[in-house]
Simulated assay, not measured.
Amino acid sequence: MVQQKVIGLIGGMSWESSAEYYRIVNETVRARLGGLRSARCLMWSFDFGEIEALQHAGRWDEATAELVSAARRLERGGADFVVICTNTMHRMADDVQAAIGLPLLHIADPTAERIRAAGLSRVGLIGTAFTMEQDFYKGRLASRHGLDVLVPAAADRAEVHRVIYEELVQGRALPASRKAYQAVIARLVERGAEAIILGCTEIMLLVRPEDSPVPLFDTTALHAEAAVDRALAGL
């Protein structure tokens, strides 16, 4: 009997969104295979307080070493491929991939593929300041997938980032913050965004389709579903 591939999940950044990964992966496997079927997966879950401190101190080399260690643990545990359950930490995706003998499923790729399949090319990106301002994410969207990526203005970027770290990663989704995100999205649409990428895995806890006049592409769901695609390939 051919078995599912084992999904190696690097989670805990934050655990709120990692729980969504686990839910989506298992619900998708059950929907596709039926009955009592669920995903074959492993998860290494970080203490996010430690990772967040490294992020905001700019100690990216140390953060990279932590992710490499997690990926190697999953490899030793029997994972067939690795999924980093956060957008921001894809800053070190290439380093993680180079350090292990397993494929790494990059979060930007299934997102971009779905956007291109919808016939769209100009997108707004909201996420942490690291994701919006550094090139590791929007650069991949542009160079590998031909997308024109817009990010919010500085004040909007600051508010989007604040809400993620002060509220969403702590499990809080406040009505005032939802309104603030609606306004940020509206301004991106005014600048020509044909769609919005929810480029932080916690944003789906706050923003819903009715909050945007253009399609939303939720990286959490798209990444988790792509992991299932890979796990079930060949069955």
Rank of each mutant, 00 (worst) to 15 (best):
Leu198Ala: 10
Thr28Ala: 14
Asp94Cys: 02
Phe130Asn: 02
Met204Ile: 10
Arg208Cys: 07
Ala153Gln: 12
Leu120Lys: 03
Tyr165Gln: 10
Arg172Ser: 03
Val83Met: 10
Ala153Met: 05
Pro209Gln: 10
Ala19His: 09
Ile51Gln: 06
Thr64Pro: 00
Asp47Pro: 10
Ala118Gly: 05
Ala224Gln: 01
Met204Leu: 09
Gly139Ile: 12
Leu125Arg: 02
Glu167Ile: 06
Leu104Gln: 00
His223Lys: 05
Arg157Thr: 08
Val207Asp: 00
Val6Gln: 06
Met92Asp: 04
Gln55Lys: 09
Ala98Ile: 04
Ile126Tyr: 03
Asn87Ser: 10
Ser18Met: 06
Ser212Tyr: 07
Leu74Asn: 04
Leu141Asn: 03
Asp211Ser: 09
Ala176Val: 15
Phe130Ala: 14
Gln55Leu: 12
Ala70Met: 08
Asp218Met: 07
Phe217Leu: 03
Ser212Phe: 10
Tyr137Gly: 04
Arg208Lys: 15
Met132Asn: 07
Phe130Arg: 01
Pro175Gln: 13
Arg122Cys: 13
Ala98Trp: 00
Tyr165Arg: 08
Thr111Ser: 13
Arg32Asp: 00
Glu75Phe: 05
Arg144Gly: 04
Asp95Phe: 01
Ala193Pro: 06
Leu232Pro: 05
Pro152His: 06
Ala233Met: 13
Phe130Gly: 00
Val207Asn: 02
Ala155Gln: 06
Leu206Ala: 01
Val189Ile: 10
Glu66Gly: 00
Ala129Lys: 14
Pro103Lys: 09
Arg191Val: 06
Leu102Tyr: 05
Val207Cys: 09
Arg30Pro: 04
Arg59Val: 04
Arg208Ser: 14
Arg72Gln: 15
Ser143His: 15
Val163Asn: 03
Ala195Glu: 04
Ile196Val: 15
Leu9Asn: 03
Gly35Val: 07
Pro110Asp: 03
Leu168Phe: 05
Leu125Gly: 04
Asn26Met: 07
Gln97Ala: 14
His56Lys: 12
Ser14Val: 06
Ala195Ser: 11
Phe217Cys: 02
Ser14Thr: 15
Phe130Ile: 12
Trp60Pro: 05
Ile10Ala: 01
Thr88Ser: 15
Val83Gly: 00
Asp156Met: 04
Met89Leu: 15
Glu225His: 03
His145Ala: 10
Ala112Cys: 13
Arg116Ile: 06
Ala99Lys: 04
Glu194Val: 11
His56Arg: 12
Ala63Lys: 00
Gly101His: 03
Arg122Ala: 03
Ile10Gln: 05
Asp80Leu: 03
Ala71Val: 01
Ser45Lys: 13
Ala129Asn: 15
